[in-house]
């Protein structure tokens, strides 16, 4: 990994590493904590970029990220976990070794896909883009392979973080209206998912999504 001039690169690499840690997490609360950590790193990155480029908006967004992603969403998740009283293992279809392997391949795919982006992009921007794609894919991988509904929300959050990384890292933030809309949406999304998780828990007696297999054909 090459080091960027503004010290952005190490942070980005760290964010990606957290993804791998989530893949390796054995317990549910570890996974949630790791996602919170990732969000904090993202907020940090946003702040650095904002200060470096002198965009005040981005500092604001960094704060917002901290509040929502490191505060509100984990709070809701915790609530859900507490209410349901989970057995705290992250059950998976694929073992950890395999997960790491696939994730590694995904990182390569991301670099491949972003490899020939034209020169308008800085090297750093390209790296952030690749990382973002890798995060999207790894988040999807988590959703795909983990059985519990809460882990799917975790995977979803990783994806969302990847998205945020792309938004902040490559473009210095989206227009504010859009950014706010996205935040609002995410929030409502997690809320709705939470509501549904509650209902599923009360109807099925479990949130193991393996049991949600009655509709087929």
């Amino acid at each position: 990994m090459f080091l960027g001039s503004s010290g952005v690169s190490p942070v980005v690499t760290l964010i990606l590493a957290v993804c791998f840690l989530v893949l390796g997490a054995r317990r549910l609360d570890t996974a949630i904590r790791l996602v919170v950590f990732q969000a904090i790193l993202l907020a940090l990155l946003t702040a650095i970029l904002g200060l470096a480029n002198g965009v005040g908006e981005m500092v604001f967004i960094a704060g917002l990220t901290l509040v929502i992603k490191a505060g509100l969403i984990p709070f809701i998740l915790k609530k859900v976990v507490d209410r349901i009283g989970l057995s705290s293992e992250t059950r998976s279809y694929v073992n950890r070794k395999m997960s790491f392997l696939i994730a590694g391949a995904l990182v390569m795919v991301s670099y491949l896909a972003t490899g020939q982006i034209a020169a308008t992009q800085s090297a750093e921007g390209r790296e952030i883009l690749a990382t973002a794609i890798a995060m999207l894919l790894i988040g999807l991988l988590v959703m795909m392979t983990r059985k519990l509904a809460v882990m799917q929300i975790v995977g979803f959050l990783i994806m969302e973080n990847g998205l945020f990384l792309a938004g902040v890292g490559t473009t210095h933030g989206m227009p504010l209206v859009v950014e706010l809309g996205i935040f609002l949406d995410m929030l409502i999304g997690v809320l709705v998912m939470g509501i549904l998780t509650f209902r599923i828990q009360s109807s099925f007696g479990s949130i193991n999504t393996e049991k949600l297999r009655n509709l087929r054909g």
Binding site: L140, M144, T145
Partner: peptide
């Protein structure tokens, strides 16, 4: 087959 993981897998594979 009803498995949401499989469905997500379709998405995943398509994208990759």
């Amino acid at each position: 087959s009803g498995s949401i993981h499989l469905y997500l897998g379709y998405l995943f594979i398509t994208l990759v």
